[in-house]
Design a protein around this nucleic acid. Structure first.
Lengths: 202, 202
DNA sequence: TGTTTATGTCAACGAGTGTTGATATATTTA
DNA sequence: TAAATATATCAACACTCGTTGACATAAACA
């Protein structure tokens, strides 16, 4: 398979050509961590999924924790859609926020890292810390400013995020039929006004 | 240490005398499963916590799954306090429900089994199924009748329970300071009206 | 008494774990 | 070309895991 073109396999963003096996391994790891949790995911399984020797995974990511950390990395504009929820019509803010929050966790590039973080938090302190930091620091730094500086505003934002994570939990992890069976649109419509009420503090 | 009294160690409720080691082991298992999750909990650790040989744990509970199942068992009147929430003043139903729900997961005899179920659901299908059943069947059989038979009432009850589990998640598992730092009373006061709104369907 | 059952310990099995070092090939660079 | 680096495989290490069978003691029962 020798090609005379100098950089035939230029994968976007990588420094040089080489192979794209690193990403294949990382994608397999993201899937495993997101579906099986931290402890139940083994380097050997990830390697098998990627069709690669386990030692190569270690060579790429140093340790299981290194691979896990790489699997939890979020995209740059991860919170873009969350922030955008506050730019729409003010009276439907709660609904838009709910819809976009669920969407963030359920599809797109950040869905698997976020689910891996959530599942991992059940048995891995690093994942719990990352989720804690994601909610308390990053998410609230986006939502907070939209609420002004009223007393207890940050607290109410934390409560809202917690409740929305509860919906994610029921839908994607526990898969409670009554909640998982509803479309995002309908769910956001049902919950939106109440979310908005909590956010605004009545 | 020989005592001449014939039945010195009569543990309450057990058929005969013997020792109370079974309960000691079960309590150790509940703690481990509730704090570390299913996969990270090993029979050897539980045995060590209980000061006992691992083989004895197997003899008592047959397998790790047997021990896990026993650790998830809930008390008989587990849902009593949840039902009681609907007997108080109607205008504070959401607040009372929230308070009692959080209380159920955070203290008392059922707190550890419930947390073990929640943590276990992240990596163990049995635990996920049990949590699913607990919410969809048992919890809703208590809440549902209190809401009458309006269209979508069960769905809204499922949503409420999911959101309340989100609060538990943030407080006890992820320990997000903003949410874990609030007292149950204050949290129930903040969230109560909105919970009630979701429950009633506006 | 003797028999049965419950309680408890010990050593070991096979399997899976994260991790390492040696080694071989392919690609890039000089 | 040759040197250097990246990619990849293999076998093996020390360890933990759930589980088992043999064996010992203690209590309950006949």
């Amino acid at each position: 398979m020798s090609s005379n073109s100098p950089s035939a396999n230029a994968s976007r963003g990588r420094r040089a050509g080489y192979s794209g096996t690193r990403e294949t391994v990382l994608n397999a790891a993201k899937k495993r961590f997101a579906h099986d949790g931290y402890t139940a995911t083994s380097i050997r399984k990830v390697a098998a999924d990627a069709g690669v020797d386990p030692a190569l995974v270690m060579q790429f990511y140093k340790s299981k924790d290194g691979l896990f950390a790489a699997s939890l990395a979020l995209s740059e504009d991860c919170l873009g859609h969350i922030a955008a929820a506050f730019d729409g019509p003010a009276d439907r803010m709660g609904e838009t926020l709910t819809y976009n929050f669920l969407r963030l966790w359920e599809e797109g590039a950040d869905a698997e890292p976020l689910m891996a973080t959530l599942r991992g938090a059940a048995s891995n302190e690093v994942a719990a810390a990352q989720l804690r930091e994601f909610v308390q620091a990053r998410l609230l730094s986006v939502i907070g400013p939209k609420l002004g500086e009223g007393v207890g505003n940050a607290q109410r934002a934390g409560i809202v995020v917690s409740m929305l994570m509860g919906l994610v939990l029921s839908r994607s992890m526990v898969q409670i039929p009554l909640v998982a069976g509803i479309s995002r649109e309908e769910l956001a419509r049902s919950v939106g006004p109440s979310i908005q009420a909590v956010l605004r503090g009545r």
